[in-house]
Nucleic acid binder design. Structure first.
Length: 465
RNA sequence: GUGGAUGUAGCUCAGUGGUAGAGCACUGGAUUGUGGCUCCAGGUGUCGCGGGUUCGAUCCCCGUCUUCCACCCCA
């Protein structure tokens, strides 16, 4: 019989246990931070009815959607009526519209789940990946100040994760569109196309953008110059950002641009109030983001020590989230971390090492005779809230230590015959290469102290995240 | 979906028209109860798959699949 090669589909990320633990820690931190800021948990099904998921956002999105159907439907030749979600925002829209009368507004929800995209897998680009979304959805209206809260959450989160250098970049699509209109590029479709290219500025450079705008779009040279000067500017501080916005407002009397300027001023002011230092924030007028539903503020976050990673989380403001599902007006602002990509890329850069095991103590077993005592010890430790793995088969101590070392288990309790004869148990700390002995009755207490210390003072190196 | 590359041991890769090698990893031992270091020993391959040229192909040619990169789009 020929064997089937065991493999996953391209674009799926599977981890070994110690990597999985590290990833889980990342998700735990994200979840805890979201809850700290008052967001409520929501989960939605992986599959949605296709007609719900594919409202009519249309073309590009639909090409990336996986469809699903029952065997019966497939055999009957019917079109699939189910589809896998490709983000968490569309399901949120459906959710909010569906439960509108049972939810309190502004509705603050977080959602950490996997999404699916049928695109060609590439480095750091997955077909199945985690998104960690936070959104605030208002009823009828949602003041711009909320647009400042989401970056504040990210600032708090990334600081907590120990990412030293990161920067939240902010822009506003009203400002962008107003500016283009002021330059004479007034057609909405044309604006979209121009912004799509502008968005690539940081990746491909000013010369490339100049050529594209002049060549492909036939924009005249003076206009290209003004456009490049604008989208190329970056703020260096809150004060400098204010000056840039003042200059724009004074130079262009377009209403949409004025509105964009006003919104950005408000967002920056509130960010300062949230305690986000301006070393971690800047205006970047080249950020345009997703073409369709963003209408105002847009964000991206980059790790400044590793700009090559690109954006690790992004989002923005949408004026009418659920218009396909309800006549109610539900404006919102949201932001999403691509946790799978973030983890994968940090790991590639060596910034994430394998975590210690979730197993805190391994109880070694040298001879069959000590099995009952080993199991009694394990039970006592578990009752004290310690994660314990007991060796159920006797073996060489060397191999058991090697096993603990590889598995990332820091402490090994050794109730050997010599120790038990003297009324003690040996405890070895593999990280510190030290060893001590305690009475069996004191083992749990002693390990609690050791584990607490290990938590405060991890072995040299520690985790980046 | 479009275009360009790639494929040799578990991993990273050398190599040659006469059917293959290194490092790492792995296993055992040095050490009869103490991991990471060191030393010694050991095994591993349909050279991606199918066809063609050739006395002979892992090497040359064609096809195919895979993975990677770029585009598109995005976390």
């Amino acid at each position: 019989m020929s064997l089937v090669q065991p493999r996953t589909l391209p674009g799926a990320l599977e981890l070994l246990p110690r990597e999985q633990i590290a990833f889980q820690r990342l998700l735990d931190t994200i979840r805890a931070t979201y809850e700290r800021f008052g967001f409520l948990p929501v989960e939605t099904p992986v599959m949605e009815l296709a007609e719900v998921l594919l409202t009519k956002e249309g073309g590009e999105t639909e090409r990336q959607v996986y469809f699903a159907q029952s065997t019966g439907d497939r055999e009957a030749g019917r079109a699939p009526e189910l589809a896998l979600r490709f983000d968490l925002t569309v399901p949120l829209a459906r959710y909010v519209a569906q439960y509108e009368h049972q939810l309190a507004f502004p509705f603050r929800r977080y959602q950490i789940q996997r999404v699916y995209r049928g695109e060609r897998a590439q480095r750091g680009r997955f077909r199945e990946f985690y998104q960690c979304d936070i959104d605030i959805v208002g009823k009828d209206a949602l003041p711009v100040r909320y647009d400042a809260e989401l970056p504040a959450v990210i600032h708090h989160l990334f600081t907590g994760l120990g990412f030293a250098g990161f920067r939240i970049e902010i822009n506003n699509r009203k400002l962008l569109r107003g500016f283009l209109a002021a330059l004479g590029i007034e057609d909405g479709e044309r604006q979209k196309l121009v912004l799509r290219e502008v968005d690539k500025l940081d990746k491909r450079g000013a010369d490339w953008l100049r050529e594209t705008l002049a060549g492909q779009f036939g924009v005249d040279a003076p206009t290209v110059d003004r456009l490049l000067a604008f989208v190329g500017s970056r703020s260096e501080s809150y004060g400098h950002a204010g000056e840039l916005l003042d200059g724009l407002a004074a130079a262009h009397d377009h209403p949409l641009l004025q509105q964009g300027v006003a919104e950005l001023r408000e967002v920056l002011a509130r960010l300062a109030d949230f305690g986000v230092p301006d070393s971690h924030v800047r205006l970047n007028f080249a950020i345009a983001r997703g073409l369709d539903y963003y209408t105002g503020t847009v964000y991206e976050t980059v790790l400044t020590d590793h700009p090559e990673i690109g954006s690790v989380c992004s989002g923005g403001r949408y004026e009418d989230l659920a218009s396909h599902y309800t006549k109610s007006r539900l404006p919102g602002v949201g932001l999403s971390i691509g946790a799978t990509r973030l983890f994968w890329q940090l790991r590639e850069l060596g910034l994430f090492r394998d975590s210690e095991s979730t197993v805190q103590v391994l109880i070694a077993l040298l001879d069959e005779a000590q099995l009952p005592e080993a199991l009694r010890l394990a039970t006592a430790l578990r009752e004290a809230g310690i994660n314990v793995e007991a060796q159920l088969e006797p073996g060489k101590l060397k191999n058991q230590l090697k096993y603990a070392d590889r598995a990332g288990i820091r402490f090994v309790a050794i109730p050997g015959p010599d120790e038990l004869a003297r009324g003690v148990v040996a405890v070895k700390d593999l990280a510190r290469q030290s060893q001590f002995e305690v009475a069996p009755a004191e083992l749990a207490r002693a390990l609690e102290v050791e584990i607490a210390q290990a938590r405060v003072m991890p072995p040299a190196g520690g985790d980046a995240g």
